[in-house]
Protein backbone atom coordinates (compact mmCIF):
# COMPACT_ATOMS: atom_id res chain seq x y z
CA UNK A 1 0.00 0.00 0.00
CA UNK A 2 1.12 3.52 -0.73
CA UNK A 3 -0.09 6.48 1.29
CA UNK A 4 0.39 10.01 0.01
CA UNK A 5 0.95 12.66 2.65
CA UNK A 6 1.51 16.37 2.44
CA UNK A 7 2.95 18.87 4.81
CA UNK A 8 0.69 21.92 5.17
CA UNK A 9 0.75 25.12 7.22
CA UNK A 10 -0.99 24.79 10.58
CA UNK A 11 -4.46 26.29 10.08
CA UNK A 12 -4.77 27.42 13.66
CA UNK A 13 -2.01 29.92 12.94
CA UNK A 14 -2.54 32.76 10.47
CA UNK A 15 -1.04 32.11 7.06
CA UNK A 16 1.88 34.33 6.21
CA UNK A 17 2.14 35.67 2.68
CA UNK A 18 5.21 36.67 0.73
CA UNK A 19 5.21 39.81 -1.36
CA UNK A 20 4.68 37.72 -4.48
CA UNK A 21 1.39 36.50 -3.11
CA UNK A 22 2.51 32.95 -2.43
CA UNK A 23 2.38 31.33 0.94
CA UNK A 24 5.27 32.10 3.20
CA UNK A 25 6.06 28.65 4.52
CA UNK A 26 8.83 29.89 6.75
CA UNK A 27 6.34 31.74 8.90
CA UNK A 28 4.07 28.88 9.86
CA UNK A 29 4.86 25.64 11.63
CA UNK A 30 3.85 22.88 9.26
CA UNK A 31 1.76 19.84 10.19
CA UNK A 32 0.63 16.69 8.41
CA UNK A 33 -2.44 17.48 6.31
CA UNK A 34 -5.20 16.33 8.68
CA UNK A 35 -7.05 14.41 5.93
CA UNK A 36 -3.87 12.42 5.22
CA UNK A 37 -3.86 11.22 8.82
CA UNK A 38 -7.22 9.56 8.06
CA UNK A 39 -5.80 8.05 4.85
CA UNK A 40 -2.86 6.63 6.78
CA UNK A 41 -5.24 5.23 9.37
CA UNK A 42 -7.21 3.45 6.64
CA UNK A 43 -4.00 1.79 5.44
CA UNK A 44 -2.88 0.94 8.97
CA UNK A 45 -6.23 -0.72 9.75
CA UNK A 46 -5.84 -2.93 6.69
CA UNK A 47 -2.29 -3.74 7.68
CA UNK A 48 -3.43 -4.66 11.21
CA UNK A 49 -5.89 -7.14 9.79
CA UNK A 50 -4.30 -8.48 6.64
CA UNK A 51 -0.64 -7.48 6.85
CA UNK A 52 1.22 -5.78 4.04
CA UNK A 53 3.74 -3.02 3.74
CA UNK A 54 2.98 0.70 3.86
CA UNK A 55 5.13 3.16 1.95
CA UNK A 56 4.43 6.83 2.59
CA UNK A 57 5.26 9.25 -0.17
CA UNK A 58 5.41 13.02 -0.03
CA UNK A 59 6.43 15.80 -2.35
CA UNK A 60 7.65 19.03 -0.82
CA UNK A 61 10.60 20.91 0.58
CA UNK A 62 13.44 18.91 2.23
CA UNK A 63 11.83 19.60 5.59
CA UNK A 64 8.76 17.59 4.58
CA UNK A 65 10.59 14.45 5.72
CA UNK A 66 9.06 15.35 9.09
CA UNK A 67 5.61 14.22 7.98
CA UNK A 68 7.08 10.98 6.66
CA UNK A 69 8.72 10.34 10.03
CA UNK A 70 5.43 11.13 11.71
CA UNK A 71 3.75 8.52 9.52
CA UNK A 72 6.45 5.98 10.38
CA UNK A 73 5.90 6.75 14.06
CA UNK A 74 2.28 5.80 13.55
CA UNK A 75 3.15 2.50 11.86
CA UNK A 76 4.13 3.07 8.23
CA UNK A 77 7.10 0.95 7.11
CA UNK A 78 9.08 3.32 4.94
CA UNK A 79 9.02 6.79 3.49
CA UNK A 80 10.12 8.44 0.26
CA UNK A 81 10.43 12.18 -0.21
CA UNK A 82 10.26 13.88 -3.57
CA UNK A 83 12.10 17.12 -3.40
CA UNK A 84 13.64 19.08 -6.23
CA UNK A 85 13.60 22.71 -7.26
CA UNK A 86 12.32 21.59 -10.64
CA UNK A 87 9.14 20.41 -8.91
CA UNK A 88 8.39 23.79 -7.37
CA UNK A 89 5.31 25.75 -8.43
CA UNK A 90 3.51 22.61 -9.58
CA UNK A 91 -0.24 22.75 -9.96
CA UNK A 92 -2.35 19.62 -9.41
CA UNK A 93 -1.63 18.17 -12.85
CA UNK A 94 2.15 18.50 -12.50
CA UNK A 95 2.01 17.26 -8.90
CA UNK A 96 -0.01 14.23 -9.97
CA UNK A 97 2.43 13.55 -12.80
CA UNK A 98 5.43 13.71 -10.47
CA UNK A 99 3.85 11.53 -7.79
CA UNK A 100 2.72 8.97 -10.34
CA UNK A 101 6.24 8.68 -11.74
CA UNK A 102 7.48 8.02 -8.20
CA UNK A 103 4.72 5.44 -7.64
CA UNK A 104 5.79 3.64 -10.82
CA UNK A 105 9.29 3.49 -9.44
CA UNK A 106 8.13 2.21 -6.04
CA UNK A 107 6.37 -0.55 -7.95
CA UNK A 108 3.64 -2.96 -6.97
CA UNK A 109 0.76 -1.88 -4.80
CA UNK A 110 -2.85 -2.84 -4.23
CA UNK A 111 -4.02 0.49 -2.87
CA UNK A 112 -2.95 4.09 -3.02
CA UNK A 113 -4.54 6.10 -0.24
CA UNK A 114 -4.78 9.88 -0.18
CA UNK A 115 -6.59 12.31 2.06
CA UNK A 116 -9.71 13.58 0.30
CA UNK A 117 -8.05 16.97 -0.09
CA UNK A 118 -5.29 19.08 1.42
CA UNK A 119 -6.37 21.86 3.72
CA UNK A 120 -4.17 24.46 2.05
CA UNK A 121 -5.39 24.10 -1.52
CA UNK A 122 -8.66 22.22 -0.88
CA UNK A 123 -8.69 21.06 -4.50
CA UNK A 124 -9.24 17.29 -4.08
CA UNK A 125 -7.73 16.92 -7.57
CA UNK A 126 -4.35 15.28 -7.16
CA UNK A 127 -5.72 11.83 -6.22
CA UNK A 128 -7.99 11.37 -9.26
CA UNK A 129 -5.30 12.79 -11.55
CA UNK A 130 -2.78 10.23 -10.31
CA UNK A 131 -5.33 7.46 -10.86
CA UNK A 132 -5.87 8.64 -14.43
CA UNK A 133 -2.15 8.84 -15.14
CA UNK A 134 -1.62 5.32 -13.73
CA UNK A 135 -4.73 4.10 -15.53
CA UNK A 136 -6.30 2.59 -12.41
CA UNK A 137 -9.80 3.06 -10.96
CA UNK A 138 -10.51 5.49 -8.13
CA UNK A 139 -13.05 5.83 -5.35
CA UNK A 140 -13.14 9.28 -3.77
CA UNK A 141 -14.59 10.62 -0.50
CA UNK A 142 -14.51 7.17 1.12
CA UNK A 143 -15.53 6.82 4.75
CA UNK A 144 -15.39 3.07 5.24
CA UNK A 145 -13.86 0.05 3.47
CA UNK A 146 -14.98 -3.53 3.91
CA UNK A 147 -13.63 -6.69 2.35
CA UNK A 148 -15.88 -9.51 1.24
CA UNK A 149 -15.04 -13.20 1.32
CA UNK A 150 -14.03 -13.28 -2.33
CA UNK A 151 -11.66 -10.34 -1.57
CA UNK A 152 -13.74 -7.87 -3.48
CA UNK A 153 -14.14 -4.63 -1.56
CA UNK A 154 -17.04 -2.34 -0.78
CA UNK A 155 -16.54 1.36 -0.18
CA UNK A 156 -18.90 3.68 1.64
CA UNK A 157 -18.67 7.01 -0.10
CA UNK A 158 -19.98 10.39 1.07
CA UNK A 159 -22.42 11.98 -1.40
CA UNK A 160 -25.05 14.73 -1.39
CA UNK A 161 -27.83 13.82 0.98
CA UNK A 162 -26.29 10.57 2.21
CA UNK A 163 -23.95 7.78 1.22
CA UNK A 164 -23.27 5.48 -1.69
CA UNK A 165 -21.95 1.93 -1.54
CA UNK A 166 -19.47 1.23 -4.33
CA UNK A 167 -18.32 -2.31 -5.00
CA UNK A 168 -15.24 -3.57 -6.81
CA UNK A 169 -16.21 -6.29 -9.23
CA UNK A 170 -12.77 -7.88 -9.11
CA UNK A 171 -10.76 -9.10 -6.11
CA UNK A 172 -8.56 -6.25 -4.91
CA UNK A 173 -5.47 -8.30 -5.65
CA UNK A 174 -6.33 -8.12 -9.34
CA UNK A 175 -7.33 -4.52 -9.47
CA UNK A 176 -5.08 -1.92 -7.85
CA UNK A 177 -6.87 1.35 -7.14
CA UNK A 178 -6.65 4.78 -5.64
CA UNK A 179 -8.86 5.71 -2.71
CA UNK A 180 -9.33 9.15 -1.16
CA UNK A 181 -10.39 9.13 2.49
CA UNK A 182 -12.62 11.64 4.28
CA UNK A 183 -12.22 13.12 7.72
CA UNK A 184 -15.43 11.34 8.69
CA UNK A 185 -13.62 7.98 8.43
CA UNK A 186 -12.09 6.07 11.34
CA UNK A 187 -10.14 8.40 13.65
CA UNK A 188 -6.34 8.31 13.37
CA UNK A 189 -4.53 6.43 16.12
CA UNK A 190 -2.05 7.91 18.58
CA UNK A 191 1.70 7.36 18.20
CA UNK A 192 3.56 4.69 20.19
CA UNK A 193 6.96 5.16 21.83
CA UNK A 194 8.44 2.29 19.81
CA UNK A 195 7.27 4.02 16.65
CA UNK A 196 9.08 7.20 17.61
CA UNK A 197 12.26 5.24 17.94
CA UNK A 198 11.84 3.62 14.55
CA UNK A 199 11.02 6.92 12.90
CA UNK A 200 14.11 8.57 14.31
CA UNK A 201 16.33 5.88 12.85
CA UNK A 202 14.54 5.60 9.52
CA UNK A 203 16.50 6.53 6.41
CA UNK A 204 14.30 8.52 4.07
CA UNK A 205 15.53 8.65 0.49
CA UNK A 206 15.09 11.96 -1.26
CA UNK A 207 14.30 11.66 -4.96
CA UNK A 208 14.74 14.41 -7.47
CA UNK A 209 13.47 14.58 -11.05
CA UNK A 210 16.30 12.44 -12.40
CA UNK A 211 15.64 9.68 -9.85
CA UNK A 212 12.12 9.11 -11.13
CA UNK A 213 13.45 8.70 -14.63
CA UNK A 214 11.29 10.78 -16.87
CA UNK A 215 11.25 9.86 -20.56
CA UNK A 216 12.87 12.30 -22.88
CA UNK A 217 9.63 14.06 -23.78
CA UNK A 218 8.49 14.30 -20.18
CA UNK A 219 10.90 16.90 -18.91
CA UNK A 220 8.47 19.75 -19.37
CA UNK A 221 5.82 18.00 -17.28
CA UNK A 222 7.32 19.00 -13.95
CA UNK A 223 6.90 22.17 -11.94
CA UNK A 224 5.76 25.36 -13.59
CA UNK A 225 6.17 24.14 -17.19
CA UNK A 226 3.94 21.13 -16.48
CA UNK A 227 1.26 23.26 -14.86
CA UNK A 228 -1.53 24.57 -17.09
CA UNK A 229 -2.98 26.74 -14.33
CA UNK A 230 -1.47 29.90 -12.99
CA UNK A 231 -2.28 31.91 -9.91
CA UNK A 232 -2.99 35.38 -11.21
CA UNK A 233 -3.79 37.01 -7.93
CA UNK A 234 -4.30 36.25 -4.27
CA UNK A 235 -6.35 38.48 -2.04
CA UNK A 236 -7.40 38.41 1.55
CA UNK A 237 -11.12 39.05 1.32
CA UNK A 238 -11.52 38.87 5.04
CA UNK A 239 -8.84 41.40 5.76
CA UNK A 240 -11.71 43.80 6.29
CA UNK A 241 -13.45 41.40 8.65
CA UNK A 242 -13.08 42.20 12.30
CA UNK A 243 -11.66 39.30 14.27
CA UNK A 244 -14.22 37.34 16.23
CA UNK A 245 -15.19 39.07 19.47
CA UNK A 246 -15.10 36.43 22.11
CA UNK A 247 -17.00 37.40 25.24
CA UNK A 248 -14.47 37.09 27.99
CA UNK A 249 -15.60 39.04 31.01
CA UNK A 250 -17.62 37.66 33.89
CA UNK A 251 -19.46 34.41 34.38
CA UNK A 252 -21.49 32.63 31.71
CA UNK A 253 -24.62 34.69 32.44
CA UNK A 254 -22.70 37.91 32.00
CA UNK A 255 -21.07 36.68 28.83
CA UNK A 256 -24.47 35.80 27.39
CA UNK A 257 -25.76 39.19 28.35
CA UNK A 258 -22.95 41.01 26.60
CA UNK A 259 -23.31 38.73 23.57
CA UNK A 260 -26.98 39.61 23.35
CA UNK A 261 -26.28 43.31 23.72
CA UNK A 262 -23.50 43.39 21.14
CA UNK A 263 -25.16 41.21 18.54
CA UNK A 264 -28.66 42.65 19.01
CA UNK A 265 -30.20 39.38 17.83
CA UNK A 266 -33.07 39.82 20.18
CA UNK A 267 -34.32 42.96 18.46
CA UNK A 268 -34.00 41.22 15.11
CA UNK A 269 -36.17 38.33 16.22
CA UNK A 270 -38.97 40.55 17.47
CA UNK A 271 -39.33 43.00 14.58
Amino acid sequence: MIVLVKQVPDPSKKVGMTEQGTVDRTKSLPIMNPFDAFALEAALSIKDKYGGKITVLSMGPPKADEVLREAITLGADEGVLLSDRKMAASDTLATAFTLSKAIEKIGDFSFIFCGMQAIDGDTAQVGPQIAERLNIPQVTFVEEINFNEDMTATFKRVIEGGHEIVKSNLPITECPMLITITNTAKKPRLPKITGKFKAKKAKIPVWGVKDIEPDENQHDKFGMSGSPTRVKKIERPNSGKEPCRVMEDGNVEEKIESLMEHSKINSLSTD
Binding site: D91, T92, L93, A96, G121, D122, T123, A124, Q125, V126, G127, P128, Q129, A131, E132, R133, Q138, T140, F141, R157, V158, I159, E160, S227, P228, T229
Partner: peptide, 23 residues
Protein backbone atom coordinates in the same frame (compact mmCIF):
# COMPACT_ATOMS: atom_id res chain seq x y z
CA UNK B 1 -18.37 21.08 -7.43
CA UNK B 2 -20.36 18.12 -6.13
CA UNK B 3 -19.04 14.77 -4.99
CA UNK B 4 -19.41 13.49 -8.55
CA UNK B 5 -18.20 16.67 -10.28
CA UNK B 6 -15.09 16.74 -8.12
CA UNK B 7 -14.59 13.04 -8.76
CA UNK B 8 -14.73 13.16 -12.56
CA UNK B 9 -13.41 16.62 -13.47
CA UNK B 10 -9.80 16.12 -12.28
CA UNK B 11 -9.62 12.81 -14.09
CA UNK B 12 -10.95 14.35 -17.29
CA UNK B 13 -8.48 17.24 -16.99
CA UNK B 14 -5.64 14.72 -16.66
CA UNK B 15 -6.91 12.75 -19.67
CA UNK B 16 -7.07 15.88 -21.81
CA UNK B 17 -3.97 17.40 -20.20
CA UNK B 18 -5.51 20.72 -19.40
CA UNK B 19 -5.91 22.88 -16.30
CA UNK B 20 -8.71 22.66 -13.76
CA UNK B 21 -9.70 24.92 -10.89
CA UNK B 22 -11.64 23.44 -7.98
CA UNK B 23 -14.69 24.77 -6.21
Amino acid sequence: ASTSGRDMAPRIAARIQTGLTAD
